[in-house]
Design a protein around this nucleic acid. Structure first.
Length: 307
RNA sequence: GGGGAGAUACCAAAGCGGCCAACUGGGGCAGACUGUAAAUCUGCUGGCAUAUGCCUUCGGAGGUUCGAAUCCUUCUCUCCCCA
């Protein structure tokens, strides 16, 4: 029998890193070089109404390389990492027929992970159940959530952060809907993907990064972030607007804080966010780290993986 | 020139004789995180030590006291009011 040479698996190159590090620019250059396209893994650039404040790729940048998952949904839509996993996987399969590698870039660790490793299947959210739970929490406090969780899912109770209402709320939601413990839906094994993955992390000296972030916020203000936020003020209670760059300006519009204070807070909160991203990425040992200026090294590494 | 208020750790700000290495907030640092994640949550933050602990701090210098960030004297500086 003839042994056929196995088709090499297509490659997904993930360009990740903290906000403001220069992922967009770097990835566009790479996409041009490899004549391919880009998927975004930035949970806020998904929203088409959010442009300036999320540093979404500009029309000019979009014309340089084809992007996916930027502005594909509205702030009014419900979305999560699982939906993203399904959609991104579907798209990737199509793209790999025509090109290789394909780039993925963004800073949302959870979304990157759910595409790379998979995320467990959970029942769909029931808005009614969710509302009731939230109301109960607001009325009775977190101790109520803890008691409920202990009753419905003692296993998960042992593991969750009992100070974090969001975590408990999510778990209870699933318990209520299915009548089964939330933890029973959590199956550790990593999902197999039909492509290989190369993770490239971009990072630099912390002070340098923070300076870039501060400057970028000033630029956003110059580019009209305030007007953008104003136009979205009506949606301020939506989760998608619970976003750095918008929530602070909403407070300013309310008269709670000064304009200067709002800008200062945007800078600080962006810095905090960048740190959280770095903490998330730090535990992923597969990431190969580079300074954004190390183009040659990055290209060489990708080449060696594409063959 | 006269009168008053104050100087506390990176910043702001409590403490006003022992329970103070010093409340609290901010900032900074570190961390957790399987679903609206740019969200949500946690810890540390004078130095050394795994820790009991030890060492150096509350503008400077003296003093009172068993014991001071806290009381007294004095010096320096800041702020406010009247000239």
């Amino acid at each position: 029998m003839e042994i056929r040479k196995k088709e090499p698996a297509p490659l997904l190159v993930v360009i990740l890193g903290p906000t403001g590090i220069g992922k967009t620019r770097t990835t566009i250059e790479l996409a041009k070089k490899f004549n391919t396209e880009i998927l975004s893994a930035d949970s806020r650039q998904f929203y088409r109404e959010l442009k300036i404040g999320t540093a979404s790729p500009t029309p000019q940048e979009l014309s340089e390389a084809r992007h996916h998952f930027t502005g594909h949904i509205s702030v009014k839509d419900y979305y999560n990492a699982s939906i993203y996993e399904v959609q991104a996987l579907e798209l990737l399969e199509k793209l790999f027929h025509k090109m290789n590698p394909v780039f993925l870039t963004g800073g949302s660790g959870l979304y990157i992970d759910s595409l790379c490793n998979g995320i467990d299947d959970l029942p769909h959210v029931d808005q009614e159940v969710r509302k009731k739970l939230l109301a109960a929490y607001i009325q009775k406090g977190i101790s109520f959530l803890r008691e409920e969780l202990l009753r419905f899912d003692p296993l998960h109770y042992e593991k969750v952060d009992l100070n974090n209402p969001k975590r408990i709320l999510k778990a209870l939601e699933v318990c209520y809907i299915t009548g089964k413990p939330y933890s029973s839906f959590l199956t550790q094994p990593k999902k197999e993907r039909g492509f290989s993955i190369l993770k490239i992390g971009l990072n630099m000296d912390r002070h340098e990064l923070y300076q870039r972030i501060n400057q970028r916020v000033d630029r956003m203000i110059q580019e009209g972030l305030e007007a953008e936020a104003k136009s979205l003020y009506a949606f301020r209670n939506l989760n998608a607007l619970n976003t750095v760059g918008y929530k602070e300006l909403f407070d300013y519009f309310d008269g709670t804080i000064s304009r200067e204070k709002a800008i200062e807070l945007i800078k600080r909160n962006t810095r905090h966010y960048a740190k959280r991203q770095l903490t998330w990425f730090a535990r992923d040992k597969e990431i190969r780290w580079f300074h954004p200026s190390e183009n040659e090294g990055i290209i060489a590494l990708i080449r060696s993986h594409v063959e």
